[in-house]
Design a protein around this nucleic acid. Sequence first.
DNA 1: GGCCAGGACACCA
DNA 2: TGGTGTCATGGC
Length: 228
Amino acid sequence: MTYSLTRTVPTARVLQRVYRLLYGAYGPMNWWPAETPFEVIVGAFLTQNTAWVNVEKAIHNLKRAGLMDPQKMDTVPEKKLADIIKPSGYFNQKAKKIKSFVKHFGEKYDYSIEKMKDRPFNDMRKELLEMWGIGPETADSIMLYALGKPIFVIDAYTLRTFRRLGFLDEKDDYDSAQKMFMKHLKSDAVLFNEYHALIVALGNRLCKARPGCNECPLHEHIECNPHL
DNA sequence: GGCCAGGACACCA
DNA sequence: TGGTGTCATGGC
């Protein structure tokens, strides 16, 4: 195995091969790990730059407090919400973000996920991105995993993994990476759902511990530079 | 005890 | 447009 630093333009076939290798190794992920679309949205805020194990604690607290409900969350004091989601970190900011979202969710959509789904794709994404506290990853996570819209979610694992594979370089950002995937893959919410989940599964297993390369399902199949 | 995790925003040049 | 600081807990 040699480590090449030269960027290679990925093709649809290569991206599909990576997908098949990951799927073959890990199987269907059946994401997002949540009971309801609203819980997906809350989780999308809570997981911002945060390990999922800590998000689970916050979600557990919310359920125990009977607050995993948009109307109740809209009325709970921000201070109390912050205290409940404390284990997820950045709790003051996240409480403010979630409160901001549920207020809008109630005013414009009457707390109805279905009404959000009815909005045109581009309008909905633009609206999410204009909301305070919602950046591209959170917006697209909501679009894909809560609303079932076909959009490819990019995260830190995606950039790191595909830079190591030489399909993205340092200059690539969220938008260019997303274009790369969506240019070559069919626009399919189920495919995008599984693909992103599988990338996270890979990242959770390997990216924290580089010596784990031998366990990587891409190992021996696709050239990779694990030092990036 | 340091590092980092499924980001986003404010501020500055 | 790009770089840097801030937000913060918990596991390893």
